[in-house]
Nucleic acid binder design. Sequence first.
DNA 1: TCTATATTTCTGCAATTATCGAAATATGAA
DNA 2: TTCATATTTCGATAATTGCAGAAATATAGA
Lengths: 119, 119
Amino acid sequence: MKVAPPARKTLDQVARYADMFSAMGTEPRLRIMQLLLSAHPAGLVVGDIQEEVDIPNSTLSHHLEKLKSEGLVNVRRESTFLRYTANTEALQELLRFLYSECCTRNQALKPEEIIRICK
Amino acid sequence: MKVAPPARKTLDQVARYADMFSAMGTEPRLRIMQLLLSAHPAGLVVGDIQEEVDIPNSTLSHHLEKLKSEGLVNVRRESTFLRYTANTEALQELLRFLYSECCTRNQALKPEEIIRICK
DNA sequence: TCTATATTTCTGCAATTATCGAAATATGAA
DNA sequence: TTCATATTTCGATAATTGCAGAAATATAGA
């Protein structure tokens, strides 16, 4: 008996989450996300990030472009500065997805292993 | 005033989580993880996975190698078959890390946006 | 106002590195 | 040996990195 293949829409969703994971899938970019979350909601300008990551500025710029294009960060200009902030809606979606896959849709992990329920 | 840089150990941890995100950072590999979680704890043999993912078998093999090398799956031989299973310990670590960064260490997201607390 | 200069960050391109897939190889069972 | 399952090898294609230069904005001085 053949099982129905996953809906197109579902596969698109998975592809989108995969792209987000990929965006967080290098040490510099994951570190950048940590910094932006620490500075949330104010965010950081590029120069502030630059001081923390020890990579050339053009490389940093490429990394920020990647995070932006996958929707994990937002940017706005402040005169000559560009201020980056974590996109919490996107992170929430991604975290819910991972939590759901591991703990809800399948019961591979127990919720209480991740989070203290009812402190 | 200068802030102390992150400890070496901490950066290594971040690099490891980044590698795990990278391993889940393509549609086929994320799909494979979904399949293995759905089939947990029994797991699946390569042929079973092959039927679901519509990619050449050599490519599938490369993807499985990547997931294995980042510790997201375990493998054991069953005669001529290789049976892959999700490594729930690794997934738990990764999920805890992401949850912690978003909801605990920084309060960028509210826990109740991810999980129903106290059903 | 116009020009020059300084500051911040991005973009273009070339070298390196990683990924994909066809063909060949390995592994185990009968 | 032969068949079935899955990996490994290796060349072609694509992505990443970082240097050099450009773009955007602000400010000062003529």
